[in-house]
Design a binder for these strands. Structure first.
Lengths: 182, 182
DNA sequence: GTCTATAAAGCGATAGAC
DNA sequence: GTCTATCGCTTTATAGAC
């Protein structure tokens, strides 16, 4: 990946996360990254769509290496899931940061990035299900609990932001930790 | 409320729900409602902001009369909550329909409509908490379970749309019903 | 109350100099 | 690789005829 591209990626990601796809204009991207249109189109010849596509691939890659793989490789499955909660809580800054994949799911442009979005949640649910099974859960119970965990995280993010109260997210994660060990 | 305004409100609501605030252009609203700009600005002199504000007020009013009030007035609290799940499931078309309040919470324009959004979720949590207490739940347990129910609904909507699987929403509602009676 | 015409600004994208 | 200038189009909003 080029130097320019990788340097501007975090600011670009935060732009899409904060404003959504439609709300992120090139002018806003320029303000956030410090790069003019010339530089942006040099790095992303296909324009705004490609910018978001690269951002989504980067997010998925981060979760694959930082969350999914450690979960898959954890010697102790329950401890691995606890670390997943740690990483998730840190990533979403205790509910102050929205989930871009979740945000995109709500509106129409979901269709254009459906593959990225589906892959992200599908992988997460699958590796979490496997780990729950390793922890002794029955197969279909594991699948549904994994589904419940992902939905709870997404809902906690929404409600925390809606009511402007990060404690909602923290309590949700604590509840899920407790459910895991009871 | 004027005749024109009330006639176009459902189409207007679906527009904002489907495309979000930034993604809803006046051209799209014209296509959805059949009303030109002249008519729209006659009904909403303050423009697009006012259109969304009126839509949010209408949504809150609907929940107040169709969900919150029946819950508050229910003779049997548990049965009342079950009816709340029925109404919620019907309203969100088993997860195929997004929650506009939740959608708006994700991005920046949340700030502009923060009062509408906060009021919606705050009222819902409060009346649900009261009803759980009437059903015999301890005060703080009731508050947290109400919080968990709202977050679960929002998260189930997000995950159902993300994975394009309405069954996720239905299972979530069923799990919540079960938690209520165990 | 609804329409068409139009304004002024912003949009994504391109061209070409450096 | 970055910039500025510019294109063509869409945006929100207004004006004025009917």
């Amino acid at each position: 990946m080029s130097n320019t591209l990788s340097k501007c990626l975090p600011a670009l990601t935060e732009c899409f996360r904060e404003y959504g796809y439609e709300g992120t204009s090139l002018a806003r991207i320029t303000a956030a990254t410090g790069l003019g249109k010339g530089s942006l189109y040099n790095a992303f010849p296909e324009g705004k769509d490609q910018m978001l596509a690269v951002v989504l691939e980067e997010i998925t890659l981060w979760f694959e290496t930082q969350v999914f793989a450690p979960l898959q490789l954890a010697d102790e499955p329950v401890a691995g899931i606890m670390e997943m909660f740690d990483a998730t809580s840190a990533y979403f800054k205790s509910g102050k940061r929205a989930c871009l994949m979740g945000t995109l799911s709500a509106t129409q442009c979901r269709d254009r990035f459906a593959n990225h979005i589906k892959s992200y949640f599908f992988q997460w649910q699958q590796v979490l299900t496997d780990t729950l099974i390793r922890a002794g859960w029955e197969n279909s119970q594991a699948k549904f609990f994994a589904e419940e965990i992902l939905a709870s995280i997404q809902g906690a993010l929404t409600l925390s932001r809606a009511l402007d109260d990060p404690a909602i997210f923290d309590r949700t994660i604590e509840r899920l930790r407790h459910r895991l060990t009871e």
